[in-house]
Every structure is written in C-alpha cells, then in structure tokens.
Amino acid sequence: LELTLRVGDKTWHFKDVDEEFVRHLEELLKRGAHEREIEEIIREWLR
C-alpha cells in the first residue's frame, strides 16, 4: 500500500505501508486525534 497523509501543514508519503498501521491511523482519525498524537505515531512507525 502507498499512503499520503496530510496533517496540519505537514505531508507524508509512505510506500509499502503495513495495513495494520493504516487501520491504526484510521482509528486515531475517527476519534479525533490531535495533530501531535498523529505525528508521534508516525515517528514511532518510522523507527
């Protein structure tokens, strides 16, 4: 999967994204996660 995600003024483009990561992001967005929380999840995933 490829994913382009825009949060606030930042845009990330990922290739070979894990479906579990996408589901986790979807859940965060559904519950109205704040920009900082989403950025933290992305940084963790990139490690």
Rank of each mutant, 00 (worst) to 15 (best):
R6M: 13
F14R: 00
E26T: 13
V22Q: 02
R6F: 03
T11I: 13
L5D: 00
L5C: 04
H24R: 11
V17A: 12
R43N: 11
R31C: 05
R31A: 12
A33F: 09
W12R: 00
W12G: 00
K15W: 06
W45V: 03
R23E: 05
V17G: 15
G8R: 02
E27I: 10
K10D: 03
K30P: 01
R36K: 13
I41M: 12
V22I: 06
R23K: 12
E39A: 06
D16I: 14
D16T: 14
E37H: 08
I42A: 01
W12M: 02
G8K: 02
W45K: 04
T4S: 08
K30G: 08
K15C: 05
R43T: 11
E27S: 13
K15E: 05
R47V: 11
D9N: 10
L1D: 12
F21P: 00
D18W: 02
G8P: 00
H13N: 05
G32F: 06
D9H: 05
E39W: 07
L25H: 00
R6N: 11
G32H: 06
V7W: 06
E40L: 10
E44S: 09
W45T: 03
L29D: 02
I38M: 05
E39S: 07
V7Q: 01
D18F: 03
E2F: 09
A33E: 05
K10R: 09
R23L: 09
L1V: 07
E19W: 15
K10A: 06
E44N: 11
D9W: 01
E19K: 15
E37Y: 11
I41A: 12
R23F: 09
E44I: 10
H24K: 13
R47G: 08
I42M: 03
K30L: 11
L1H: 13
G8A: 03
G8H: 02
L28Q: 08
R6V: 15
I41H: 10
K10T: 13
L1E: 12
G32C: 06
E35M: 08
R47M: 10
G32K: 04
E20P: 15
W12H: 02
W12F: 09
K10G: 02
H13K: 08
W45I: 03
R43A: 10
R47P: 04
V17Y: 04
L28H: 07
L28T: 06
K15A: 06
H34W: 07
E20C: 04
T4D: 05
K10S: 06
A33G: 07
L1K: 13
H34G: 13
W45Y: 15
W45A: 03
D16Q: 15
G32Y: 06
V17K: 12
V7I: 13
D18H: 10
E26L: 15
F14I: 06
I41Q: 08
L25A: 03
T4C: 13
D18P: 13
E39K: 04
D16Y: 15
E27F: 13
A33H: 09
F21R: 03
R43G: 07
R36V: 12
E35A: 09
R47E: 06
E35K: 06
R36Y: 13
D9F: 03
H34Y: 07
E40C: 08
R47L: 10
T11H: 15
F14K: 00
K15M: 07
E26I: 14
R36E: 14
A33W: 13
E37A: 07
F21Y: 02
D9V: 03
E37I: 09
E27C: 07
R43M: 14
R47D: 05
E39H: 06
W45S: 03
D16N: 15
R23S: 08
I38P: 01
D16L: 15
E37D: 11
V17F: 03
R36P: 06
I41S: 08
E40K: 12
H24M: 12
E27V: 11
R47F: 12
K30S: 11
E27N: 14
R6T: 15
W12P: 00
W45D: 01
E20Q: 14
E2V: 07
H24Y: 13
E19P: 11
G32W: 04
W45M: 05
E44R: 10
L3D: 01
L28V: 08
D18K: 06
L25Y: 02
H34M: 09
R47N: 08
R36F: 10
R23A: 08
I41T: 11
F14W: 01
W12N: 00
F21K: 04
L29C: 05
L25D: 00
V22S: 02
L3F: 10
W45R: 04
W12L: 02
D18C: 03
W45N: 02
V22P: 01
L29E: 03
I42N: 01
E44A: 12
W12A: 00
A33D: 05
E19I: 15
I42P: 00
E39Q: 06
F21I: 04
E20W: 15
V22C: 02
K10L: 06
I41P: 00
E26W: 13
R6W: 03
K10V: 14
E39P: 01
R6P: 03
I38R: 01
E19M: 13
L1T: 11
D18L: 02
E35S: 09
L5M: 05
K30Q: 11
W12D: 00
L3E: 01
E37Q: 10
W12I: 02
E19L: 14
D9C: 09
T11V: 15
A33I: 11
A33K: 08
L28G: 03
L29Y: 07
G32Q: 05
L29S: 05
E20Y: 13
K30C: 05
E27H: 11
E26N: 10
E27Q: 13
G32L: 04
D16A: 15
E19C: 08
D9P: 03
E39M: 09
I38Y: 04
L1C: 12
E44L: 11
R43S: 09
R36S: 14
E37G: 03
F21V: 03
L28N: 04
L25W: 02
E44D: 09
I42V: 06
V22L: 03
H24P: 01
V17D: 10
R43H: 12
E2W: 14
D16G: 13
W45L: 04
I38Q: 02
E2P: 03
L3V: 11
E40T: 10
E20L: 14
R23M: 09
L29T: 06
E19Q: 14
K30A: 12
H34Q: 14
R47Y: 09
E20H: 12
L25E: 00
F21T: 03
L3R: 05
E44M: 10
H34D: 14
V17C: 05
E40Q: 12
E26K: 14
A33T: 12
R36Q: 14
R31H: 10
E20K: 15
A33P: 03
E40S: 12
R31E: 09
L46V: 09
